[in-house]
Design a protein around this nucleic acid. Sequence first.
DNA 1: CAATAGATCATCT
DNA 2: GATGATCTATTGC
Length: 157
Amino acid sequence: MIVETEAYLGLNDLAAHASRGKTERTKVLFGPAGRAYVYFIYGMHECLNVVADREGEPGCVLIRALQPLAGVSEMQERRNWRGPVCGLTNGPGKLTAALAITRQHYGHRLDRGELTIRRWQSRPQFKTAVTPRIGIRECADWPLRFVWAGHPCLSRR
DNA sequence: CAATAGATCATCT
DNA sequence: GATGATCTATTGC
């Protein structure tokens, strides 16, 4: 269950990869919504985004943290992790490692198939908080990070 | 505790 | 050649 996301708006958002235009890396962002934009960062981490705007408008949503609801033992084994379950997925680079999501999933659909993101059947009761995005320089004050307030799996408060 | 450093490489200039 | 939508370990108070 996804508990922390950030929005990246595209051409006017200088923190967004797509603000510099369409390249081999960013081309999927300019396509239809519901596809995976997976990028490699800092020489060692993969991050997962959902393409989220109409064709030609390169908006996307970075998945920053989630609570595992299934497959926990496989994730623990894959990461050799003996700590709290949220520690597997409380960060954009950590959740992809736990779920074995890599750039080989670039462009894959997220509305069907192996990487399906399911809609919540019933929305849990919780409060939402909005904060600036993490780890960026440009547009550092834009309120585009959305979290389930107080959830234990957040990457930060 | 908070702040900083180091790892490590695809991508873009 | 510089940078970065991160993470972990280490240092310092």
